[in-house]
Protein backbone atom coordinates (compact mmCIF):
# COMPACT_ATOMS: atom_id res chain seq x y z
CA UNK A 1 0.00 0.00 0.00
CA UNK A 2 1.26 3.44 -0.90
CA UNK A 3 1.58 6.25 1.59
CA UNK A 4 0.42 9.44 -0.09
CA UNK A 5 0.71 12.98 1.20
CA UNK A 6 -2.47 14.96 0.53
CA UNK A 7 -1.31 18.51 -0.22
CA UNK A 8 -4.57 19.91 1.16
CA UNK A 9 -4.79 17.89 4.38
CA UNK A 10 -0.99 18.08 4.68
CA UNK A 11 -0.88 14.56 6.04
CA UNK A 12 0.58 11.23 4.89
CA UNK A 13 -2.45 8.97 4.46
CA UNK A 14 -2.79 5.31 3.29
CA UNK A 15 -3.59 4.66 -0.36
CA UNK A 16 -7.01 3.16 0.40
CA UNK A 17 -8.24 6.70 1.21
CA UNK A 18 -7.49 7.79 -2.35
CA UNK A 19 -8.83 7.13 -5.83
CA UNK A 20 -6.63 7.20 -8.86
CA UNK A 21 -7.67 9.78 -11.45
CA UNK A 22 -5.14 9.04 -14.21
CA UNK A 23 -2.91 11.29 -16.33
CA UNK A 24 -2.55 14.87 -15.04
CA UNK A 25 -2.25 18.12 -16.97
CA UNK A 26 -4.29 16.79 -19.85
CA UNK A 27 -6.11 19.86 -21.11
CA UNK A 28 -9.62 19.53 -22.41
CA UNK A 29 -9.38 20.52 -26.09
CA UNK A 30 -10.29 24.13 -26.65
CA UNK A 31 -12.43 23.51 -29.70
CA UNK A 32 -16.11 22.95 -29.16
CA UNK A 33 -17.15 19.33 -29.45
CA UNK A 34 -18.65 19.88 -32.89
CA UNK A 35 -15.46 21.19 -34.46
CA UNK A 36 -12.98 18.74 -33.00
CA UNK A 37 -12.55 15.77 -35.30
CA UNK A 38 -13.10 12.20 -34.12
CA UNK A 39 -9.38 11.50 -34.03
CA UNK A 40 -8.66 14.24 -31.54
CA UNK A 41 -11.82 13.66 -29.56
CA UNK A 42 -10.71 10.03 -29.12
CA UNK A 43 -7.33 11.23 -27.89
CA UNK A 44 -8.96 13.39 -25.26
CA UNK A 45 -11.38 10.73 -24.11
CA UNK A 46 -9.37 7.50 -24.34
CA UNK A 47 -5.67 7.98 -25.04
CA UNK A 48 -3.09 8.00 -22.24
CA UNK A 49 0.67 8.53 -22.07
CA UNK A 50 1.08 5.47 -19.84
CA UNK A 51 4.66 6.44 -18.98
CA UNK A 52 7.24 3.96 -17.72
CA UNK A 53 9.27 6.23 -15.47
CA UNK A 54 8.35 9.43 -13.66
CA UNK A 55 4.78 10.52 -14.41
CA UNK A 56 2.39 13.28 -13.43
CA UNK A 57 -0.96 11.94 -12.33
CA UNK A 58 -4.15 13.03 -10.61
CA UNK A 59 -5.36 11.56 -7.36
CA UNK A 60 -8.57 12.15 -5.44
CA UNK A 61 -8.68 12.16 -1.65
CA UNK A 62 -11.97 10.28 -1.62
CA UNK A 63 -12.11 9.30 2.05
CA UNK A 64 -10.58 12.56 3.22
CA UNK A 65 -10.97 16.16 2.07
CA UNK A 66 -12.48 15.00 -1.26
CA UNK A 67 -10.22 17.25 -3.31
CA UNK A 68 -8.36 16.44 -6.51
CA UNK A 69 -4.61 17.05 -6.50
CA UNK A 70 -1.58 15.97 -8.52
CA UNK A 71 1.29 13.62 -7.77
CA UNK A 72 4.65 12.86 -9.31
CA UNK A 73 5.15 9.12 -9.11
CA UNK A 74 7.70 6.61 -10.31
CA UNK A 75 5.66 4.01 -12.17
CA UNK A 76 8.26 1.28 -11.70
CA UNK A 77 9.01 1.55 -7.97
CA UNK A 78 5.61 3.18 -7.30
CA UNK A 79 7.36 5.71 -5.04
CA UNK A 80 5.38 8.94 -4.72
CA UNK A 81 8.08 11.59 -5.30
CA UNK A 82 5.95 14.68 -4.66
CA UNK A 83 2.35 15.82 -4.45
CA UNK A 84 1.06 19.31 -5.23
CA UNK A 85 -2.21 21.18 -5.44
CA UNK A 86 -4.24 21.46 -8.63
CA UNK A 87 -3.12 24.41 -10.71
CA UNK A 88 0.43 24.38 -9.33
CA UNK A 89 3.46 23.70 -11.48
CA UNK A 90 4.84 20.17 -11.14
CA UNK A 91 7.96 20.24 -8.93
CA UNK A 92 9.62 17.42 -10.91
CA UNK A 93 9.61 16.90 -14.69
CA UNK A 94 8.26 13.73 -16.31
CA UNK A 95 10.88 11.30 -17.60
CA UNK A 96 10.98 7.85 -19.16
CA UNK A 97 13.30 4.96 -18.50
CA UNK A 98 12.06 3.20 -21.64
CA UNK A 99 10.11 4.59 -24.57
CA UNK A 100 10.10 7.97 -26.29
CA UNK A 101 8.51 11.22 -25.36
CA UNK A 102 6.02 12.18 -28.05
CA UNK A 103 3.68 15.11 -28.16
CA UNK A 104 0.28 14.71 -26.58
CA UNK A 105 -0.99 18.02 -27.99
CA UNK A 106 -4.32 18.04 -29.81
CA UNK A 107 -3.97 19.06 -33.38
CA UNK A 108 -5.94 22.07 -34.38
CA UNK A 109 -8.62 20.87 -36.76
CA UNK A 110 -10.17 24.21 -37.63
CA UNK A 111 -8.41 27.24 -39.02
CA UNK A 112 -7.75 29.86 -36.32
CA UNK A 113 -10.16 32.77 -36.58
CA UNK A 114 -8.75 36.23 -37.28
CA UNK A 115 -9.75 37.30 -33.78
CA UNK A 116 -7.60 34.55 -32.29
CA UNK A 117 -4.68 35.36 -34.58
CA UNK A 118 -4.72 38.94 -33.32
CA UNK A 119 -4.10 37.79 -29.72
Amino acid sequence: MLLIRCPYCEQDRPEVEFSYAHQAHKPRPEEAEGTLDDHNWARWVYYRKNIKGVAHERWYHAAGCRKFFNAVRDTVSSEVLATYRSGETPPIEESRIEGEEISFEYERTTEPTSAEEGK
Binding site: Y47, R48, N50, K52, R96, E100, I102
Partner: peptide
Amino acid sequence: GHSSVLASMAGFHLPVES
Protein backbone atom coordinates in the same frame (compact mmCIF):
# COMPACT_ATOMS: atom_id res chain seq x y z
CA GLY B 1 2.15 -4.57 -20.57
CA HIS B 2 4.81 -2.70 -22.54
CA SER B 3 2.60 -1.86 -25.53
CA SER B 4 2.55 1.88 -24.83
CA VAL B 5 6.33 1.88 -24.43
CA LEU B 6 6.84 0.19 -27.81
CA ALA B 7 4.20 2.33 -29.52
CA SER B 8 5.89 5.50 -28.25
CA MET B 9 9.15 4.32 -29.89
CA ALA B 10 7.19 4.14 -33.15
CA GLY B 11 5.73 7.60 -32.56
CA PHE B 12 2.13 6.95 -31.52
CA HIS B 13 0.08 6.80 -28.33
CA LEU B 14 -2.42 4.11 -27.33
CA PRO B 15 -5.67 4.10 -25.37
CA VAL B 16 -4.08 1.63 -22.97
CA GLU B 17 -2.98 1.72 -19.34
CA SER B 18 -0.63 -0.77 -17.69
